[in-house]
């Protein structure tokens, strides 16, 4: 209804200029930012030996699926993918719960732990005890070789909490007030009023969390490297990458040229790995995107 009303108002001259400039700018952005990805895609689909010659832009010169086949021959990718999906789901969910709860609690001005907790959280973004103490801690908590190590230690992200809090701060307080008058308790307000209104920011945070979880491999390496049933896709792919980059102990110095020469060039494999890793996240994206691209009308929630 409102939409048709707005559309019926004739755009002014300056608005039209604005639109032209804006659309041109966006088209430019699109071209410039599409290039690296297309480049990666093209190289991943190009013959690995031919890739060395360089000059591949957005179209493979000698098309092949060989690089992908090379990757998929490795063991452990399926288990890895399963664990990766699980940790992404669990980690995202837990991160959303912790972020939104803390964000909400810390947005309540009358909450007496507010200042202390905010400071306590904020500082964690700027220091770290270092790898050795964390490693020892994880071992003492018996979290080595366990799935929990993927989701518990990094469960709370201060950054996410503050982003969510600032979003909640932007919401009209009257909504909370009226709910309170209706006798709703703090959790009900969080659950009934705040969560639904926070969809855009939660979708964003979910994206950050999911990408972070999906891409991480170093924790797998440190804590679960010797537990094949718990390794992630990224970790397995990292192994492939490291091995194609040569300097293998197995290869003696006396190995002759013919043998070195036929090994796959790391370049194409690397690109294929990038694609394999990125595509699943790209598939999730549209589901999250609609929440933060489209604006919302508060009126709908109010009633």
């Amino acid at each position: 209804m409102a939409r048709t009303k707005a559309a019926s108002i004739k755009p002014s001259f300056s608005d039209r200029v604005f639109d032209i400039v804006n659309y041109t700018f966006m088209t430019l952005v699109m071209i410039v930012t599409l290039y690296p990805f297309l480049n990666v895609l093209a190289i991943s689909l190009n013959d690995s030996v031919d890739t060395v010659r360089g000059g591949i832009t957005i179209w493979p010169r000698q098309f092949t699926l060989e690089n992908y086949m090379q990757i998929f021959q490795y063991e452990g990718l399926i288990t890895g993918a399963k664990i990766s999906v699980l940790r992404t789901l669990a980690g995202t969910l837990l991160g959303l719960i912790s972020g939104s709860m803390l964000g909400y609690v810390l947005s309540r001005i009358e909450f007496q732990g507010r200042k202390f907790m905010s400071t306590f959280l904020a500082l964690t973004m700027y220091f770290s005890g270092g790898m050795i103490p964390v490693f020892i801690l994880i071992r003492d908590l018996n979290m080595m070789n366990s799935f929990l190590v993927y989701i518990i230690p990094g469960m709370v992200s201060a950054f996410n909490v503050f982003v969510i809090r600032s979003f909640i701060d932007g919401l009209p307080y009257s909504l909370q007030e009226s709910a309170k008058l209706d006798g709703a308790n703090d959790f009900t307000i969080y659950y009934r009023i705040i969560l639904p209104l926070c969809k855009p920011v939660l979708a964003t945070i979910a994206l950050f969390l999911a990408v972070g979880q999906w891409n991480s491999w170093f924790d797998t390496y440190l804590y679960n490297g010797s537990a094949p049933h718990l390794t992630t896709l990224q970790f397995e792919l990292m192994k492939v990458l490291q091995s194609t980059q040569g300097q293998n102990t197995g290869m003696g110095a006396g190995q002759n040229m013919a043998e070195i020469v036929k090994q796959v060039s790391p370049e194409s494999i690397k690109m294929a790995i990038t694609i394999v890793v990125t595509v699943p996240i790209l598939l999730v994206y549209p589901f999250l995107q609609r929440y933060f691209v489209k604006g919302m009308t508060l009126g709908a929630v109010k009633s």
Binding site: L86, L89, A90, L93, L94, N142, N145, S146, F147, L148, I151, Y191, S226, A227, H229, L230
Partner: peptide, 23 residues
């Protein structure tokens, strides 16, 4: 929906932490 998600989460947590003593 929320309950289902939370149950899924606890399930995942408990299912996977079992891998602890395997090897």
């Amino acid at each position: 929906l929320l309950l289902a998600i939370m149950m899924l989460a606890t399930f995942i947590l408990s299912a996977c932490s079992g891998g602890n003593n395997g090897n």
